[in-house]
Amino acid sequence: MARVRVRQHVNPLSAKYSQPIILPKWYTVYSSPDQPLHLDIGCGRGKFLLNMAPLYPKMNFLGIEIREPLVIEANQQCDRLQLPNVSFLFCNINLYIDTILTSLPPNILNCVTIQFPDPWFKRSHQKRRVVQPDLVQAIATHLVENGSVFLQSDVKEVAEEMVDNFLVNSSFQQQHQETWFPENPFPIATEREVATLNKNQPVYRVLLQKINP
């Protein structure tokens, strides 16, 4: 399959990404829709989830991506591999995360990952960053007790901001004493993580847990 070429950066605040979301009927997406769910926000081409899904057949995986061509490509790969527990959805997650999570069976959101989100370095663009207070609150509302949130970035400032936005919400606590979690807790690394480590550059990781506030 030819690799789709898409823009690396898209402005989530533009009208193009405010269009109404079309939600699937989850029983047509997953063979067992009531299984625990791992949500990957900003999944890119979906390779992380496409590799995770066969390893954890008793868990469902949902990737969210704002670049529609990548979602189409990832779902085609999913169909080709005949994976019944993973799917990909095109949307602006900051507008529709609560809509998505409310539409799912209750009490299934077990894990959320946000890995190497667009850093939007310019100060005037930082409002475009994915981890905003409303996103954190939606995750806090729907994540099961003791559920986990894993964050990582190769930009320290972005990692620190993500952590601050989660920890200001009383539903979350850090699961480790070190400032940064020493290694990826998952057996699969994203393409960006592999590329960063191959250049001997640091990755800033944090593992959070939902608690009763």
Rank of each mutant, 00 (worst) to 15 (best):
E65Y: 00
V130M: 09
D34T: 07
S171C: 05
Y30F: 15
K199H: 08
L23F: 14
T179N: 10
L49R: 09
T28D: 15
I66R: 01
R123H: 15
K199S: 08
E183Q: 13
R7Y: 06
E183C: 10
R3D: 11
Q19N: 09
N184C: 08
R129Y: 09
L101Q: 03
P12Y: 07
A159I: 00
A53T: 07
N146K: 10
R192E: 15
R205G: 08
D118Y: 06
A159W: 07
N94C: 08
P185W: 10
L109I: 12
I22H: 09
Q76S: 13
Q76E: 12
H176F: 07
S31C: 08
Q175L: 10
L151G: 13
L55C: 02
V6K: 05
L104P: 03
K47M: 14
R5I: 11
C43Q: 03
I97F: 01
N60W: 06
H9G: 09
F90R: 07
H125Q: 14
E183A: 13
N11H: 11
A53V: 02
L83D: 01
I41R: 03
N85Q: 08
L83P: 01
E193G: 07
A159K: 11
E73K: 04
L104V: 04
D118C: 12
A189F: 05
R5H: 12
M1R: 03
I211N: 10
H9A: 00
V155E: 13
P69K: 01
P54L: 10
V112P: 13
C78N: 02
V155T: 13
Q137V: 02
C91T: 15
L55D: 00
L208Q: 13
P105L: 09
Y30G: 09
Q19V: 11
V149C: 02
K156M: 13
